[in-house]
């Protein structure tokens, strides 16, 4: 029993927290990046610009349908071929940001498509240009609808950072593995710690999502709710 309690010595906890810090750092940075790029790419995909939308759509479909582990290999082993040498932390940030941008872009596209065409037509009739109508009328409504789906995507992102141990990202998962790799008695305590730490972060995010859903859900029609639900389910991970 004492040996098991030794797993939670200050030295080990500190080591785990250092890993958790890397997990949080990589997650937060790639959440910010993928939110920005996801919306831009989603809009480009929706508005049907000659060439650009088609190419962006194609790239999104390709990357969305690959496992995240492959994207991690491509950034870590592939980017240096074009002159940029990321360390595991930056390689993970880039890989997660690219992968999740594509996921968010797909959610945003579906979100804009779920806004009734009348909104756009009405705005145009009132003298707004296509881009003004999109920017001020359609997009705000769409993003409001999409927030639960996007948050759920970000929960996946946090969980998926654990896969980056394959390129030796010193994250929570990696540090836990190092600890139980050096002392078998610590295996169960480490898995418990992993489960609790990931669960706390992800579950609080999902509570946030539910809170946002309730706060903004009031004025939505049933059709929108279903579109949101569907997009949540479409939102995917590794």
């Amino acid at each position: 029993m004492l040996t098991v309690l030794g797993a939670y010595s200050w030295v080990n906890i500190k080591f785990l927290l250092e890993g958790a810090w890397v997990t949080v750092f990589v997650s937060v940075l790639s959440i910010i990046l993928s939110y920005i790029f996801g919306i831009i790419l989603g809009v480009i995909r929706y508005v049907k610009i000659k060439y650009l939308s088609a190419i962006v759509g194609f790239v999104i479909d390709i990357i969305r349908n690959l496992p995240l582990i492959l994207i991690l290999f491509f950034t870590y082993f592939g980017l240096p071929h074009i002159g940029f040498k990321p360390d595991p932390i930056w390689a993970s940030v880039i890989a997660m940001a690219v992968f999740e941008s594509m996921m968010v872009a797909e959610i945003v596209r579906a979100g804009i498509a779920s806004i009734p065409v009348g909104q756009m037509e009405g705005a145009r009739a009132n003298g707004l240009s296509y881009w003004q109508a999109l920017r001020y009328i359609v997009l705000p409504q769409a993003i409001r609808n999409m927030i639960p789906a996007i948050v759920s995507q970000f929960i996946s992102l946090v969980k998926d950072t654990s896969l980056a141990t394959i390129i030796v990202l010193p994250d929570l998962m990696n540090h836990a593995q190092i600890i139980y790799g050096q002392n078998t008695n610590y295996t169960i305590p480490m898995f418990l710690a992993l489960a609790v730490m990931y669960f706390v972060v992800c579950y609080s995010l999902s509570l946030l999502s539910r809170y946002l859903e309730k706060r903004i859900g009031g004025n939505n029609s049933k059709k929108h709710d279903h579109a949101v639900e569907q997009a949540i389910e479409n939102g995917s991970d590794a």
């Binding site: 998926d160 896969l163 593995q177 169960i188 898995f191 489960a195 990931y198 992800c202």
Partner: peptide, 23 residues
């Protein structure tokens, strides 16, 4: 649902690969 949705797949898989066979 909440437990398995909010824990990384890798943690669940490693649990079955490492812990279950040990005990």
């Amino acid at each position: 649902i909440e437990v398995f949705r909010n824990i990384p797949l890798l943690v669940i898989t490693m649990f079955f690969y490492v812990v279950i066979p040990m005990y």
